[in-house]
Amino acid sequence: MTHDAGFWVLQALNALQLSMLLFLLSVGLTVIFGLMHFVNLAHGALYALGAYVAASVAGAWGGFWVGLIVAPIAVAAMGVVLYGGLIRRMRRSGPMAQVLVTFGLIFALLDLTRIIWGDVALASDVPALLEGQVRLLGVDYPAYRLFVIGLGLAVLAVLAFVLGRTQIGAMIRAGVDNDAMAACLGIDVERLFFVVFCVGCALAGLAGAVAAPLLSVTPDMGLQILIPVLIVIVIGGLGSLKGAIAGALIYGVVQTFGAVLAPQLSSVLIYALLALVLVTRPTGLFPAKG
Protein backbone atom coordinates (compact mmCIF):
# COMPACT_ATOMS: atom_id res chain seq x y z
CA MET A 1 0.00 0.00 0.00
CA THR A 2 1.42 3.38 -0.93
CA HIS A 3 0.50 6.41 1.10
CA ASP A 4 0.48 10.11 0.38
CA ALA A 5 1.96 12.83 2.59
CA GLY A 6 -1.39 13.47 4.26
CA PHE A 7 -1.39 9.92 5.60
CA TRP A 8 1.94 10.42 7.32
CA VAL A 9 0.88 13.77 8.75
CA LEU A 10 -2.19 12.07 10.15
CA GLN A 11 -0.10 9.33 11.71
CA ALA A 12 2.38 11.84 13.11
CA LEU A 13 -0.51 13.68 14.79
CA ASN A 14 -1.81 10.34 16.12
CA ALA A 15 1.61 9.62 17.58
CA LEU A 16 1.78 13.07 19.14
CA GLN A 17 -1.70 12.74 20.62
CA LEU A 18 -0.90 9.40 22.26
CA SER A 19 2.40 10.81 23.50
CA MET A 20 0.73 13.79 25.14
CA LEU A 21 -1.83 11.63 26.93
CA LEU A 22 0.96 9.44 28.26
CA PHE A 23 3.04 12.49 29.13
CA LEU A 24 0.26 13.87 31.35
CA LEU A 25 0.27 10.60 33.25
CA SER A 26 3.97 9.90 33.40
CA VAL A 27 5.21 13.34 34.39
CA GLY A 28 3.51 13.19 37.79
CA LEU A 29 4.77 9.70 38.40
CA THR A 30 8.34 10.45 37.41
CA VAL A 31 8.67 13.63 39.50
CA ILE A 32 7.20 11.83 42.52
CA PHE A 33 9.84 9.17 41.98
CA GLY A 34 12.60 11.73 41.58
CA LEU A 35 11.77 13.31 44.91
CA MET A 36 10.55 10.44 47.01
CA HIS A 37 12.30 7.49 45.35
CA PHE A 38 9.32 5.27 44.98
CA VAL A 39 7.09 4.29 42.12
CA ASN A 40 3.44 4.88 42.83
CA LEU A 41 1.91 1.88 41.05
CA ALA A 42 -1.54 3.19 41.98
CA HIS A 43 -1.02 6.10 39.59
CA GLY A 44 -3.03 4.23 36.95
CA ALA A 45 -5.84 3.65 39.43
CA LEU A 46 -5.89 7.40 40.19
CA TYR A 47 -6.15 8.06 36.46
CA ALA A 48 -9.16 5.71 36.27
CA LEU A 49 -10.66 7.51 39.25
CA GLY A 50 -10.22 10.81 37.42
CA ALA A 51 -11.98 9.43 34.36
CA TYR A 52 -14.88 8.15 36.46
CA VAL A 53 -15.26 11.40 38.36
CA ALA A 54 -15.10 13.44 35.15
CA ALA A 55 -17.64 11.22 33.39
CA SER A 56 -20.04 11.29 36.37
CA VAL A 57 -19.73 15.03 36.86
CA ALA A 58 -20.14 15.70 33.13
CA GLY A 59 -23.19 13.45 33.08
CA ALA A 60 -24.85 14.87 36.19
CA TRP A 61 -24.08 18.58 35.97
CA GLY A 62 -23.89 18.86 32.24
CA GLY A 63 -20.54 19.60 30.88
CA PHE A 64 -17.18 18.21 30.05
CA TRP A 65 -15.47 21.38 31.24
CA VAL A 66 -16.84 21.09 34.76
CA GLY A 67 -15.58 17.51 34.82
CA LEU A 68 -12.20 18.61 33.54
CA ILE A 69 -11.83 20.92 36.52
CA VAL A 70 -13.46 18.77 39.19
CA ALA A 71 -11.61 15.54 38.34
CA PRO A 72 -8.07 16.82 39.07
CA ILE A 73 -9.28 18.42 42.30
CA ALA A 74 -11.07 15.24 43.41
CA VAL A 75 -8.04 13.08 42.62
CA ALA A 76 -5.72 15.56 44.35
CA ALA A 77 -8.01 15.31 47.39
CA MET A 78 -7.63 11.54 47.18
CA GLY A 79 -3.89 12.19 47.05
CA VAL A 80 -4.08 14.19 50.28
CA VAL A 81 -5.87 11.28 51.96
CA LEU A 82 -3.38 8.74 50.64
CA TYR A 83 -0.41 10.87 51.62
CA GLY A 84 -1.67 11.51 55.13
CA GLY A 85 -2.91 7.96 55.68
CA LEU A 86 -0.27 5.85 53.98
CA ILE A 87 2.57 7.45 52.11
CA ARG A 88 3.88 9.70 54.89
CA ARG A 89 4.03 6.81 57.30
CA MET A 90 5.83 4.75 54.70
CA ARG A 91 8.53 7.37 54.14
CA ARG A 92 11.16 5.47 56.10
CA SER A 93 10.14 1.97 55.02
CA GLY A 94 12.17 1.73 51.85
CA PRO A 95 11.03 1.71 48.25
CA MET A 96 9.98 -1.95 48.12
CA ALA A 97 7.44 -1.53 50.90
CA GLN A 98 6.09 1.61 49.26
CA VAL A 99 5.70 -0.13 45.93
CA LEU A 100 3.77 -2.90 47.65
CA VAL A 101 1.47 -0.53 49.48
CA THR A 102 0.62 1.05 46.15
CA PHE A 103 0.15 -2.41 44.67
CA GLY A 104 -2.40 -3.08 47.40
CA LEU A 105 -4.01 0.24 46.53
CA ILE A 106 -4.46 -0.90 42.92
CA PHE A 107 -6.52 -3.86 44.13
CA ALA A 108 -8.53 -1.77 46.57
CA LEU A 109 -9.23 1.14 44.20
CA LEU A 110 -10.16 -1.21 41.35
CA ASP A 111 -12.88 -2.85 43.41
CA LEU A 112 -13.99 0.46 44.89
CA THR A 113 -14.69 1.83 41.41
CA ARG A 114 -16.61 -1.37 40.64
CA ILE A 115 -18.66 -1.03 43.82
CA ILE A 116 -19.44 2.65 43.24
CA TRP A 117 -19.90 2.74 39.46
CA GLY A 118 -20.61 -0.89 38.55
CA ASP A 119 -19.08 -3.02 35.81
CA VAL A 120 -20.81 -1.40 32.85
CA ALA A 121 -18.82 1.28 31.03
CA LEU A 122 -19.69 4.92 31.69
CA ALA A 123 -20.71 7.37 29.00
CA SER A 124 -18.53 10.39 28.31
CA ASP A 125 -18.84 12.60 25.26
CA VAL A 126 -16.60 15.09 23.55
CA PRO A 127 -17.71 18.66 24.43
CA ALA A 128 -19.71 20.47 21.77
CA LEU A 129 -16.94 23.01 21.29
CA LEU A 130 -14.47 20.32 20.27
CA GLU A 131 -16.70 18.19 18.08
CA GLY A 132 -15.84 17.61 14.46
CA GLN A 133 -12.53 17.99 12.68
CA VAL A 134 -10.14 20.80 11.98
CA ARG A 135 -8.19 21.16 8.76
CA LEU A 136 -4.50 21.22 9.57
CA LEU A 137 -1.47 20.69 7.32
CA GLY A 138 -3.72 19.34 4.61
CA VAL A 139 -5.55 16.76 6.72
CA ASP A 140 -8.80 16.76 8.69
CA TYR A 141 -7.95 15.96 12.26
CA PRO A 142 -10.38 15.57 15.18
CA ALA A 143 -10.57 18.82 17.12
CA TYR A 144 -10.60 16.95 20.42
CA ARG A 145 -7.33 15.22 19.65
CA LEU A 146 -5.76 18.57 18.82
CA PHE A 147 -7.02 19.79 22.19
CA VAL A 148 -5.27 16.85 23.88
CA ILE A 149 -2.04 17.73 22.07
CA GLY A 150 -2.41 21.40 23.00
CA LEU A 151 -3.16 20.60 26.64
CA GLY A 152 -0.14 18.30 26.86
CA LEU A 153 2.13 20.97 25.41
CA ALA A 154 0.67 23.59 27.74
CA VAL A 155 1.26 21.39 30.79
CA LEU A 156 4.78 20.74 29.56
CA ALA A 157 5.42 24.48 29.18
CA VAL A 158 4.03 25.30 32.62
CA LEU A 159 6.03 22.54 34.29
CA ALA A 160 9.19 23.52 32.46
CA PHE A 161 8.70 27.09 33.63
CA VAL A 162 7.87 26.17 37.22
CA LEU A 163 10.72 23.69 37.53
CA GLY A 164 13.26 25.78 35.70
CA ARG A 165 12.48 29.38 36.62
CA THR A 166 10.71 29.60 39.96
CA GLN A 167 11.83 29.24 43.54
CA ILE A 168 9.68 26.22 44.22
CA GLY A 169 11.10 24.64 41.08
CA ALA A 170 14.59 25.21 42.37
CA MET A 171 13.59 23.62 45.66
CA ILE A 172 12.19 20.58 43.87
CA ARG A 173 15.32 20.23 41.77
CA ALA A 174 17.41 20.48 44.90
CA GLY A 175 15.26 17.83 46.55
CA VAL A 176 15.60 15.50 43.56
CA ASP A 177 19.36 15.97 43.55
CA ASN A 178 19.89 15.36 47.23
CA ASP A 179 17.02 15.58 49.66
CA ALA A 180 19.19 15.44 52.79
CA MET A 181 21.28 18.36 51.55
CA ALA A 182 18.15 20.26 50.57
CA ALA A 183 16.75 19.77 54.07
CA CYS A 184 20.04 21.10 55.52
CA LEU A 185 19.60 24.23 53.42
CA GLY A 186 16.34 24.89 55.20
CA ILE A 187 13.95 23.55 52.61
CA ASP A 188 10.90 21.93 54.17
CA VAL A 189 11.33 18.67 52.28
CA GLU A 190 8.29 16.97 53.83
CA ARG A 191 6.06 19.77 52.64
CA LEU A 192 7.67 19.67 49.23
CA PHE A 193 6.93 15.95 49.01
CA PHE A 194 3.34 16.59 49.95
CA VAL A 195 2.84 19.31 47.35
CA VAL A 196 4.52 17.34 44.56
CA PHE A 197 2.55 14.20 45.41
CA CYS A 198 -0.74 16.11 45.25
CA VAL A 199 0.17 17.83 42.00
CA GLY A 200 1.14 14.45 40.53
CA CYS A 201 -2.24 13.06 41.58
CA ALA A 202 -4.04 16.06 40.08
CA LEU A 203 -2.23 15.49 36.79
CA ALA A 204 -3.30 11.83 36.83
CA GLY A 205 -6.87 13.01 37.40
CA LEU A 206 -6.53 15.48 34.55
CA ALA A 207 -5.26 12.73 32.26
CA GLY A 208 -8.24 10.58 33.23
CA ALA A 209 -10.68 13.40 32.50
CA VAL A 210 -9.03 14.00 29.12
CA ALA A 211 -8.97 10.31 28.23
CA ALA A 212 -12.62 9.68 29.15
CA PRO A 213 -14.18 10.95 25.87
CA LEU A 214 -11.39 9.31 23.88
CA LEU A 215 -11.34 5.83 25.39
CA SER A 216 -13.80 3.68 27.30
CA VAL A 217 -14.38 4.36 30.98
CA THR A 218 -14.19 0.86 32.44
CA PRO A 219 -12.89 -0.41 35.80
CA ASP A 220 -9.75 -1.92 34.26
CA MET A 221 -8.65 1.21 32.40
CA GLY A 222 -6.15 2.02 35.14
CA LEU A 223 -4.51 -1.37 34.91
CA GLN A 224 -4.36 -1.13 31.12
CA ILE A 225 -2.53 2.20 31.10
CA LEU A 226 -0.11 1.33 33.92
CA ILE A 227 2.35 -0.68 31.86
CA PRO A 228 2.63 1.90 29.02
CA VAL A 229 3.23 4.62 31.60
CA LEU A 230 5.91 2.62 33.39
CA ILE A 231 7.59 1.95 30.06
CA VAL A 232 7.55 5.67 29.29
CA ILE A 233 9.21 6.71 32.53
CA VAL A 234 11.78 3.94 32.47
CA ILE A 235 12.83 4.58 28.86
CA GLY A 236 12.99 8.30 29.57
CA GLY A 237 14.87 7.90 32.82
CA LEU A 238 13.25 8.41 36.19
CA GLY A 239 12.80 11.73 37.87
CA SER A 240 13.17 14.16 35.01
CA LEU A 241 10.73 16.20 33.00
CA LYS A 242 12.92 15.74 29.95
CA GLY A 243 12.80 11.98 30.42
CA ALA A 244 9.01 11.96 30.70
CA ILE A 245 8.51 13.89 27.47
CA ALA A 246 11.20 11.94 25.62
CA GLY A 247 9.81 8.61 26.80
CA ALA A 248 6.25 9.61 25.90
CA LEU A 249 7.27 10.70 22.42
CA ILE A 250 9.25 7.53 21.82
CA TYR A 251 6.34 5.39 23.00
CA GLY A 252 3.80 7.28 20.88
CA VAL A 253 5.92 7.10 17.75
CA VAL A 254 6.84 3.42 18.16
CA GLN A 255 3.26 2.37 18.87
CA THR A 256 1.70 4.39 16.09
CA PHE A 257 4.20 3.76 13.33
CA GLY A 258 4.75 0.20 14.53
CA ALA A 259 1.03 -0.44 14.02
CA VAL A 260 1.30 0.90 10.47
CA LEU A 261 4.64 -0.41 9.30
CA ALA A 262 5.03 -3.68 11.17
CA PRO A 263 1.61 -4.73 12.49
CA GLN A 264 2.76 -8.26 13.25
CA LEU A 265 5.46 -6.96 15.55
CA SER A 266 3.62 -4.00 17.02
CA SER A 267 2.92 -5.49 20.44
CA VAL A 268 6.44 -6.88 20.90
CA LEU A 269 8.20 -3.84 19.46
CA ILE A 270 7.82 -1.55 22.45
CA TYR A 271 9.01 -4.21 24.91
CA ALA A 272 11.97 -4.98 22.71
CA LEU A 273 12.83 -1.28 22.67
CA LEU A 274 12.50 -1.08 26.46
CA ALA A 275 14.82 -4.05 26.86
CA LEU A 276 17.29 -2.51 24.43
CA VAL A 277 17.32 0.82 26.27
CA LEU A 278 17.83 -0.87 29.63
CA VAL A 279 20.65 -3.05 28.35
CA THR A 280 22.52 -0.14 26.81
CA ARG A 281 21.53 2.60 29.29
CA PRO A 282 20.57 0.83 32.52
CA THR A 283 19.02 4.00 34.00
CA GLY A 284 17.12 5.20 30.95
CA LEU A 285 17.91 7.99 28.51
CA PHE A 286 17.70 11.09 30.73
CA PRO A 287 17.86 10.09 34.39
CA ALA A 288 17.64 12.89 36.94
CA LYS A 289 20.80 11.69 38.63
CA GLY A 290 23.91 10.09 37.14
Binding site: M1, F7, S266, S267
Partner: peptide, 20 residues
Amino acid sequence: EFTPFQQTQDFGPYLAQAKA
Protein backbone atom coordinates in the same frame (compact mmCIF):
# COMPACT_ATOMS: atom_id res chain seq x y z
CA GLU B 1 -5.75 -5.54 10.09
CA PHE B 2 -5.80 -7.31 13.42
CA THR B 3 -5.04 -5.05 16.39
CA PRO B 4 -3.27 -6.24 19.58
CA PHE B 5 -6.04 -7.66 21.77
CA GLN B 6 -6.81 -5.60 24.87
CA GLN B 7 -3.62 -3.61 24.44
CA THR B 8 -4.79 -1.10 21.86
CA GLN B 9 -5.69 2.27 23.36
CA ASP B 10 -5.54 4.34 20.21
CA PHE B 11 -7.17 3.10 17.03
CA GLY B 12 -6.13 6.25 15.19
CA PRO B 13 -3.31 4.59 13.21
CA TYR B 14 -5.62 1.86 11.93
CA LEU B 15 -8.38 4.30 11.08
CA ALA B 16 -6.01 6.35 8.96
CA GLN B 17 -5.10 3.16 7.10
CA ALA B 18 -8.72 2.24 6.56
CA LYS B 19 -9.32 5.69 5.16
CA ALA B 20 -6.37 5.41 2.80
